[in-house]
């Protein structure tokens, strides 16, 4: 187990280096520098432009800039936004709970529905339910998020009026961000001041439902399909036959002897969805005006806010890598053959 951990950690270092190089290069490949974007239509004399660039350290050779950037990172310094002059880490910390709340809700939705659908489809293989799940998940998998989000808004918000169109909470409520998780903050605010904030929690839930479904659709499809195929594979295993030959109840055969082994690859896939969720969050947050990391990064790219883009993406990527890392460890714990490997 220890060497298993060491090997995993060893892979992380080159991965991080790769990410810094990639974001550093990509943002500079987009035409226009931060100063030009800031100034916009107004013209700026070349000398003033050069002075501004020098102040930001952008006049130096690209390799030097990169080394400076790495040096900064090693000191744990994520720089400041060119626009707000605010520390990137502070901005990230403030906005991240909104994205996390959305992503967790989406993942919970995708996992619960996906597992159930996949398990039932596998048990009732070849049934109408099975065919239904397969068809819907194939559609869900290739669903364009933007279009899907707009369709749901039209249906549930505009036509039926069940859910709000955008944001995290109705402006009528007075909720101070404490944890950054709107569900928790609204809950607390409602308890603290029931007269003013009655119904705040319910309103927060209503705001969350639609974006969570939109963001969770692709992971849902992936999880359902993976669960089904993994279950079917394990159901064919000799040890499942042994379990049935022991006279165990169908429920025991499924939940004790099949599901546990079938879930190992599903767990990995769920972990990998964190990447999909972060990517999807960018679009979803834009559609629903959700004030999170996704919207923040899109704005930063538009402004060529190099520090925000570089370090914002680095933070998001670290998060994805970290969850994948944790998934790896869990995979090892769930699978005794790996746990005991020398």
């Amino acid at each position: 187990m220890f060497s298993f951990l060491l090997r995993r950690i060893g892979v992380l270092i080159p991965t991080f280096l790769g990410i810094t190089l990639l974001t550093f290069t990509l943002i500079r490949l987009i035409p226009g520098d931060p100063i030009e974007v800031m100034v916009g239509e107004r013209s700026l004399s070349p000398t003033l432009h050069a002075a501004a660039m020098k102040r930001l350290g952008l006049d130096q050779p690209i390799a030097t800039q990169y080394m400076n950037y790495l040096g900064q990172l090693l000191h744990g310094n994520l720089g400041t936004s060119l626009k707000t002059q605010e520390n990137v880490w502070v901005e990230f910390k403030t906005l991240f709970p909104a994205t996390l709340e959305l992503a967790l809700a989406a993942l919970a939705f995708a996992t619960i529905v996906g597992l159930l659908a996949g398990i039932i489809a596998a048990i009732k293989r070849g049934s109408i339910f099975d065919h239904g799940v397969m068809t819907i998940s194939l559609t869900g998998f290739s669903m364009p998020i933007f279009w899907w989000g707009l369709i749901l808004i039209m249906l549930f918000s505009v036509l039926l009026g069940w859910t709000p169109v955008s944001g995290r909470l109705d402006l009528a409520f007075d909720v101070q961000p404490q944890t950054g998780f709107m569900l928790i903050d609204a809950w607390r605010a409602e308890l603290a001041d029931p007269s003013l904030n009655a119904g705040a929690f319910k309103d927060a839930v209503k705001h969350l439902i639609l974006p969570a479904i939109v963001l969770g659709t692709i992971p849902l499809a992936v999880i359902a399909r993976m669960t089904r195929s993994s279950m079917l594979e394990v159901l064919r295993e000799d040890y499942v036959r042994t379990a049935r030959a022991k006279g165990l109840s169908p429920a025991r055969v499924i939940f004790v002897h099949t599901l546990r082994n079938a879930l190992i690859p599903v767990l990995t896939v769920i972990g990998l969805q964190v990447g999909t969720l972060m990517g999807g969050a960018v679009l979803t947050e834009t559609i629903f005006s959700w004030p999170g990391i996704g919207k923040w990064l899109i704005d930063a790219i538009g402004r060529r806010d190099y520090p925000v883009v570089q370090n914002g993406i680095l933070l998001v990527a670290s998060l994805v890598i970290l969850t994948n890392f944790i998934v790896d460890i869990l995979y090892g714990i769930a699978n005794p053959r790996i746990r005991h490997a020398k």
């Binding site: 295993e237 000799d238 040890y239 036959r241 042994t242 379990a243 049935r244 030959a245 022991k246 006279g247 165990l248 109840s249 002897h257 546990r260 082994n261 769930a334 699978n335 005794p336 053959r337």
Partner: peptide, 22 residues
């Protein structure tokens, strides 16, 4: 299921895959 595994029991050809690895 009250009989199978109790009054009639069966062992199989490949013992290595017949036990649950978990």
């Amino acid at each position: 299921r009250k009989i199978v595994g109790k009054d009639i029991a069966m062992i199989f050809q490949d013992p290595m895959t017949s036990l649950n690895p978990s």
